[in-house]
Every structure is written in C-alpha cells, then in structure tokens.
Simulated scan of single mutants.
Amino acid sequence: MLDLIQAALIRRRSLLENLQAESSDCYRLFHGINEGVPGLTVDRYGPQLLIQTFHEPVSSGDCELIHAAVEAFLNCALEMLYSDRSSANSRRSDDYRVDSWEGIAHELGVSYRVKGKHKGQDPLLFLDMRAGRRWIQQNASGKSVLNLFSYTCGVGVVAAVAGATRVLNVDFSTRSLDIGRENARLNHLNDQQIDFFQSDFFTAAKQLANIPVKQRLGRGRKPKPFPHIAKEQFDLVFLDPPRWAKSAFGTVDLIRDYPSVLKLALLATKLGGQLLCANNVASVTYEEWLAIVLRCADKAGCPVKRVTRLEPESDFPSPDGQFPLKLVVLQL
C-alpha cells in the first residue's frame, strides 16, 4: 500500500507545483479506487492530512506510515486525522466524537475553515469540485449568483471573492450555513457581497422561480411553515444536489428524477444566463445524464444553446474517463 501511495505522490509532483503557484493547499494525494487501493483516500486540507477508509479500516500503524510519507514528500508538518467510514452507511465509526481542532486551508487564493472531528460526516470542502469552483471564479465577476444545496458555501464564497454583484447561498442545514458565514468572514466579505438563506430546496427554488409551493400532507397533519423569499432570477446558477433527500415539500432523487431539481434551477436562471449543474452518482453515465438534462431544459422552455463539460482535475484520476462527479455548464 505504501509503495502505491508514494508512486501517486510522485505522479502529482507537477500538479502540486501548479496548485502551489495558485495559492492552493487543498488536494487529493491518493485516490485509491483508481490507484490501487479501493476505498482508501488521502487528502490534504491546508494544515490537515485526512485519511479516510470506505471498505476496510487500516491500522494506526499504517496511518502513521502514510502520514510520515506525505510529510516527507511535501516537506511540511501536518495534523493527521483518520476517519473510518467502512460501515454499511458510510458513517464514521467514531461519529460520537467531536474535537476542537481548527485550521485554515486555501484553494485558488480563497480561504476555508478546516475542522477535525466535527458533527458532520463529510469534509467541509469537496475537493473534486475544484473544477467547478475554478470555473465559477473565472466567470462570476459582475454577475448575480445563486448557489443551491450550498453546503458550506464554497462556490458562493468563490463567486463573491471573484466580484459577483450578488450571491445567494441556499441550504437546509443551519450548521453548514454557519460555516459558510465563517468562510465569508475569512475572506473579508460583507453582507452586501454574500447572503445566506436557510430553507428547504423546493420551497426556496419554487419561490424564486415564481411557482406555488405545495406540501405533502398526511391525514390530520397541518401544513409546515417555511421561510419566504421574493421571486428572482440570476445570471449564474449552481446546482449540486445530494443523491437522495426527502421532505414535506419534495424528494431529491438523482437516479430516478433529476428533472425535479433541475427544472426549478433552470427557471431561476435568467434568459441568456448560465447554469452549472452536477450529478455525483457513479452508476449514472455522463451520456445518459446529459440526455436527461437536455430533455428537461427543452420541456421547461429553457433550450440550451451550448454545453460545456467540466471534469475533475488530475488528482482525481479516471482511466476510463467515467468520473463519478459529472459537471456541465448550460448556456441558456
């Protein structure tokens, strides 16, 4: 295993040099599924080294060997964190544990909060989405930006730093939005540059698109209140939904019903605007997903003039080109 990791580090030498020149210290150092150890990932988040296992746990001794090899290669000291997520539901084996360690990491010159064992399962920044954040950084200046399923608001913060005229981040999780606010402060952004809206996706997106909000009510159940927002369309919309989620207002299902989320995002995009949408389900191919996306756009009355495909960068190698994360920019 250690030989495979050391070979992966060597393959990344030129990439890491380029990322360092861009003020980036966040990247994947070992992508086990395509580099010889399925289920093992090794990531750097600034001062933190995150080792994760999804199939079989590794010993503390192996973690120390990986830690030492990475520190020697990068010539810097890193705080090591190990998360075993090999249980059936991919939750951390020690998800009861929370610690107080914090640090600051950087990507493309933008700062992000890094934490140790926190209340959530996932890292606070998804590294394979760097290609999307890079595109946003290059295209958000002077535009209004809507960030749907914003998580810790990495895309929204990048857009605001790049000079967007308005940025609205929408997510159901108060904890995630609080980290987004912290990321905004780290980058010296004020309330006029970036905004946060805690809401179910369906209630927020329908109101923005000027569509009535309906609820699924069981017998004897009263309608649930939801926060209100005025209708609005944006120059640039970012859509990165989870694989599956359900609420009283709708169901997110990226395998069976991607159009249910895509249509609302399309209707919140201005005519002539751009929608960057994502699908991270490995079993769905890029070709079949793109066909669904284009059909949905036509049915919604938002025909696509141009499609630009974005692919994860080279620290996420895929020999067959079938990346789990699929990203397209739709020019409307």
Score class of each variant (00 low, 15 high):
C63R: 05
L49H: 02
T41V: 13
I66D: 06
V58E: 07
V58I: 15
S59H: 05
E64D: 15
P57V: 01
L49G: 02
I51R: 08
L50M: 11
R44Y: 02
E64H: 14
G61W: 11
S59C: 06
L50P: 10
T53H: 04
L40D: 00
S59K: 04
G61D: 15
V42S: 09
G39S: 06
T41P: 05
Y45L: 08
L65Q: 15
L40W: 00
Q48N: 12
V58K: 02
D62Q: 14
P57D: 02
L40G: 00
T41F: 04
D62F: 09
H55L: 14
F54D: 05
F54H: 14
H55A: 12
E56M: 13
Y45E: 05
L50A: 10
S59A: 02
R44L: 03
T41A: 08
P47F: 03
I66C: 02
P47D: 03
S60N: 13
F54A: 07
Q52S: 15
Y45S: 08
C63M: 03
T53Q: 04
I66S: 07
C63S: 05
D43A: 00
G46V: 01
V42R: 08
E56F: 10
A68T: 15
G61L: 09
L40S: 00
A68C: 11
P47M: 01
Q48F: 13
P47S: 05
D43Y: 01
H55T: 13
F54Y: 15
L65I: 10
H55S: 12
H67L: 11
D62V: 10
A68D: 15
Y45D: 08
Y45T: 05
G46M: 00
Q48E: 12
R44G: 01
I51Y: 10
R44P: 01
Q48R: 14
D62R: 08
